[in-house]
Design a protein around this nucleic acid. Structure first.
Lengths: 204, 204
DNA sequence: GCAGTTACCAAACGATTGTTCAGTGACTTA
DNA sequence: TAAGTCACTGAACAATCGTTTGGTAACTGC
């Protein structure tokens, strides 16, 4: 029943900041188990981390701060996974590198539905003057760059590179969001081909 | 403060079923005001309908039954809006009729974010043997028919009609879902052009 | 008039939630 | 050894939630 039933040893003198990381890790673990934001509670995170609920408030002002800490951490994970997938392919396979990025994106979304939904449904209200994409900006930037390399390699696009990136990204989000809403094992295999189809639609 | 502060007159003898409709209407109103499922509570619906919370349980087994009643009602509204938009155009404007359906879809999603999110995030677990689309099947069916008329009129598609419909639908859902996640008035005008762009991508 | 049904409601129950506050014990500095 | 700091906790508060129970008042059929 209890994920971490044993007593936790307190951190050594002067290293209290460690607990912040442990709380984030425990919250991430819990969110993965739950598959959604609904059961993600202060008490639950505390239990998963093996600490008292009150201890969380030494590191996060309130539940919102904890959630946003999680989201930030997750965006870094996602961007890293996409960049890695991109870099893993030889430079000349320009189209495959777009596909690899989007594949990594889907993998993240399908492996961690709770994280993905939390990230995309709690995007920050944007300040006037900021770019409209929020933390997703980096993701789209990476895809845009990959599309630009396609153009330089001679592949014709039906839309400018950045617009192509936005289109493919938006469509892929629709796809994984719909799958999250009613997951179906038998449909899982259809997701990747559909992303490829989105890709082929933006190429001339 | 109170949405319906005045006392409600009880329904006449034998017409108790009326309250079921009033409850659904009150729930719909409340959901529109809230803009999300989070605050949609039995007590809130009761207050909006001007009745006691307990009275809801004479017409709905539990909160889930109430929510699913709402969802069913909303799917009918959506399908009707799309069919009407389709029929409002002359038969020969085949492409515009696809666009009109998707425009009606977006209008619904943007006018009633709470309803839209409730519908798409609470899709039923599918029984083995059922079509995989759930209540969205009818929506996609209408778009598919519109694409088939395009083909018959001589417009070339890059994918079969049904596949085109699914692609455009999925992409459009991604678009409105992202807008819901961080609404921005200045981006509102960009939604319709993007849907048109999705459409033009599936045409050869 | 009287029993029975219908349409509703007031009040409470029990569970869960975020959050606060007053500590407790271990360690460091003086 | 004494004072102070740090890491952390137990217990409670106040709010909200879905749901149940036991009614009451109005109307119908007899």
């Amino acid at each position: 029943m209890d994920p971490t039933p044993q007593q936790r040893a307190r951190n050594p003198w002067g290293q209290g900041e460690r607990l912040r990381g442990e709380i984030l890790e425990a919250a991430a673990r819990l969110l993965s188990e739950l598959g959604g934001e609904e059961g993600l509670t202060i008490r639950g995170v505390a239990r998963a981390a093996g600490i008292a609920p009150a201890s969380i408030y030494q590191h996060f002002a309130d539940k919102n701060a904890l959630v946003h800490g999680l989201i930030e951490y997750d965006y870094e994970r996602l961007a890293a996974a996409m960049a890695e997938a991109d870099a893993a392919l030889p430079a000349e396979q320009v189209v495959d590198r777009v596909r690899a990025q989007m594949h990594a994106y889907c993998q993240f979304a399908l492996d961690s539905p709770g994280h993905y939904r939390l990230m995309l449904n709690n995007r920050p209200r944007r300040e006037p003057g900021e770019p409209p994409k929020g933390p997703l900006g980096k993701v789209i930037l990476g895809v845009t760059a990959a599309f630009e390399r396609c153009e330089q390699a001679g592949h014709k696009l039906r839309l400018p590179a950045e617009r192509s990136a936005v289109m493919v990204f938006v469509a892929t989000h629709g796809l994984v969001a719909l799958w999250h809403a009613s997951p179906d094992e038998r449909q899982l295999d259809r997701i990747e081909p559909m992303v490829s189809e989105f890709l082929s639609l933006v190429f001339a």
